[in-house]
Every structure is written in C-alpha cells, then in structure tokens.
Amino acid sequence: MEIKEKLKQVLIEDLNLEDVTPDEIGNDEPLFGEGLGLDSLDAVELVVVVQKHFGVEIKDMDEGRPALQSINTLAAFIEEKSNG
C-alpha cells in the first residue's frame, strides 16, 4: 500500500476518526486546526503512530512541525527518513 494511503488508514484507526473516510482526507489538507481538526494531543499520538507503523522517529519539534503539516509532508518525511 502506498505510504499516503497507509497513513490515512492508520490515522483513522489509531486516532479513532470514525466520522472520516480515507477518501475524505486530502493530501494537502492541514492535519491540524481548520483541516482535519487534529489537536496537540493528536500530535503526540501521531509521533507514536509514525514510529510504530513506519519505523521512523520524529525526534523533536524542529523535525515534527514541518512534517506534520499534511499527508503529503508527512509521507515525504517518512520516505526521506526511510531511504536515508
């Protein structure tokens, strides 16, 4: 499964977003605030989700902030770290 699709799937499952389907999450849609509506507690959970499902560690806020903007930025971060 492509990283973006898998990301959407695990986001919905691990963050219990029962009112959203993978198709409804846009690749460029902001994950926090106005977009998908995630909050700061989800950010902590997301760090765990990325490490658990993709084996990629988000070490600090400097790395996390740009990576956690959208599905596209998070997928790019995972790809970069996986290949690096």
């Binding site: 691990d14 507690l41 902590v44 959970e45 765990v48 490490q51 658990k52 560690e57």
Partner: peptide, 10 residues
C-alpha cells in the same frame, strides 16, 4: 510489543 517510545499516550 513496541517499547516505551511507542506506548500510546491516549
């Protein structure tokens, strides 16, 4: 299963 760093805070 996944260690301290992957334990769900929720």
């Amino acid at each position: 299963d996944f260690g301290y760093s992957c334990s769900s805070p929720t």
